[in-house]
Design a binder for these strands. Structure first.
Length: 560
RNA sequence: GCGCCUGUAGCUCAGCUGGAUAGAGCAACGGCCUUCUAAGCCGUUGGCCGCAGGUUCGAAUCCUGCCAGGCGCGCCA
């Protein structure tokens, strides 16, 4: 049930009728009704709903907006169910104040819908893919990947909740130069471990984790590849190491609450010929040319600022070429729409990729890239620099261990992806009132505590129809119900805008309203009827809060 | 030089796609536990919304130009 949206629609229809009636009476003049909105004003003194219709009519009607508003209001047929009063206010807003009971039907609906309260079907089962993290499988995940993980997973949750058919995908960059470097680095570590002189290439992987990986390799194969053909030796090392690294990545993501539907290998696109085929298609379409011994894509034909290499002088295809093949493959798999979560340092590639899709006759709008700004870590008021070279960076594994999954996810998703995230390790770690995660979870635990105590006393949450909900008329109660009723719209808005941070905000506000209610209204009151009504309200709050936490991928504890 | 993101309270950030007197959290200060979890509640203090123009009934929000910070502009991925 989405009572707010239903009410907005109803009030809009009422105003439309009134405006038309006013025109028929010759009191105002307009050709076409403008696209006005009925919104919930943030200032409570402006009523429950406000419409800007009169303000938008000023030009057509050639009258003062307040005057127009008054005329329209005069033609509203009263009484309207649930409407206590209609007023003209401010520059010409039409404000509706509803009676205390209009929201009450939401409570039985929440109890009935339970786990699905807040869900909807605006997605209509459309196949959509969210690709996120897709980190190099050559090491551990860092803070930037972690933000992408939290964001991507949460967006996927949101899309599922509003009725899309969602696939989570991890693109494994297991091809290209970095893998060659990876192999050379592993080889050097291998030889070193076996007492030989060997250097890791300049742009190789200097992280000490490879020493560990090579040790595992030796545990399994010993010095079997010491005198082997180097290319074979590297291949074996790479194969072994990739599997180990990917297993670790998969594991830490699971620990973070993220489970993928598809792990897609870049190498498989080369092996299947999909990359070569894609390059051929582009060639056939006439958007490819040769220069300096390399094969170029004419990205400038599609609004990009420079052309891009598809095949290097040495004959190997670039990452870009594989990426085009990959996205073509996504569409061939039947995804109507694909969303990529990328770090802002990749923003420059959006244009060329969209251009290549256009060249292949795909609508580039079917690819959507959500860019997230980089993460800066703070500890003790100082910036912790992330550097793979020096090995001084915090991994997702360490983060989960240090601050816990719930706090980490909450912090990553709390901000718009556009904003640079300053992650305060001390704050996330603190188990105190300063930490916003606990504030929200505490509300949930508090509710459970009430319900537990009720049960101990032999009191059950009554069926909603057995309670006289009209008794819920305290300010704190009404505000709480209003917030509960706002969940479906919040979820839809957050999903369509790809903005999970709206959920943390909603959760915080809901918790805050509950805490207020808790201090001013006693749930297990002496009055039996009041107690019943409040138990229904509290249970609806529990369901709403839990559902939001689920969407965020954060646990909803029953005790704290 | 060109492109993207950001600039709102002392700090970290919201501001529902243009609405009415700009909001939270933290920090600071003052109150509230013999009854359901004080990880809580109530109150006070705190603002040239980076600057300057423009668009209109109305701008933190849209447009233009500056200023400041971050990130890109590889035959790396």
């Amino acid at each position: 049930m989405n009572i707010i949206q239903e009410t907005k629609r109803r009030l809009a229809a009422v105003l439309e009728e009134a405006a038309v009636a006013a025109r028929a009476a010759g009191e105002i003049d307009f050709e076409e009704l403008p696209d006005f909105i009925v919104e919930t004003p943030r200032d409570k003194t402006h009523g429950d709903f406000a419409a800007n219709l009169a303000l938008l009519l000023t030009k057509q009607a050639r009258q003062a907006p307040r005057k127009i508003a008054e005329v329209i209001v005069k033609h509203v047929e009263m009484p309207q169910p649930g409407v206590a009063s209609i007023e003209v206010a401010g520059p010409g807003f039409i404000n509706f104040t509803l009676d205390n009971e209009w929201l009450l039907p939401v409570l039985p609906a929440v109890l009935a819908e339970d786990k699905e309260y807040g869900w909807s079907n605006v997605g209509k089962g459309t196949k959509i893919q969210v690709e996120f993290v897709s980190a190099n499988p050559t090491g551990l995940l860092h803070m930037g990947n972690a933000r992408g993980a939290a964001l991507g997973d949460c967006i996927a949750n949101l899309l599922t909740a509003v009725g899309y058919d969602v696939t989570r995908e991890f693109y494994i960059n297991d091809a290209g130069n970095q893998i060659i470097n990876f192999g050379l680095s592993l080889e050097a570590r291998y030889l070193q471990a076996l007492g030989q002189e060997a250097d890791i290439p300049e742009d190789g992987y200097h992280g000490v984790d490879l020493i560990e990986t090579v040790k595992h390799f030796i545990d399994k194969y010993g010095d079997k590849y010491l005198d082997a053909e180097p290319s074979l030796r590297r291949e074996m090392l790479v194969r072994f190491a990739l599997e180990e690294k990917l297993t670790a990545i998969r594991q830490v993501l699971e620990d973070f609450g993220v489970t993928y539907d598809v792990w897609f290998s870049e190498q498989s696109l080369h092996d299947s010929g999909a990359v070569a085929d894609t390059i051929n298609e582009l060639k056939k379409a006439g958007f490819v040319y040769e220069k300096d011994g390399a094969l170029w894509f004419r990205a400038t034909r599609f609004g990009y600022d420079k052309d891009e290499v598809l095949v290097r002088k040495n004959g190997t295809p670039t990452y870009f070429a594989a990426d085009i093949a990959y996205h073509r493959n996504k569409f061939e798999r039947g995804f109507e729409h694909v969303i990529n979560i990328w770090g802002a340092d990749h923003h420059g590639h959006v244009g060329r990729l969209k251009g290549s899709l256009k060249a292949l006759n795909y609508d580039p709008d079917r690819l959507e890239v959500v860019l997230m700004q980089l993460v800066r870590l703070y500890q003790g008021g100082e910036i912790l620099r992330m550097s793979k070279r020096t090995g001084q960076y915090v991994t997702l594994n360490e983060l989960i261990e240090e601050v816990g999954r719930d706090a980490a996810r909450y912090f990553f998703v709390m901000l718009k992806s556009d904003s640079h995230l300053e992650f305060d390790l001390d704050l996330a770690r603190s188990q105190s009132s300063e930490n916003p995660v606990y504030y929200v979870q505490y509300a949930h635990a508090r509710i459970w505590s009430i319900l537990r105590l009720a049960k101990e006393r032999g009191i059950e949450v009554p069926a909603a129809r057995e309670a006289n909900l009209k008794l819920l008329k305290e300010q704190a109660e009404i505000e709480l119900i209003k917030q509960i009723a706002a969940l479906p719209d919040t979820v839809i808005g957050a999903a369509l805008a790809r903005e999970p941070h709206r959920l943390t905000r909603f959760a915080h506000d809901l918790a805050s309203l509950f805490h207020s209610f808790y201090t001013s209204c006693r749930v297990l009151a002496d009055d039996l009827e009041v107690r019943k009504a409040r138990l229904v309200l509290v249970d609806a709050t529990r369901i709403t809060l839990r559902n939001v936490l689920n969407l965020l991928g954060i646990s909803a504890p029953e005790r704290m």
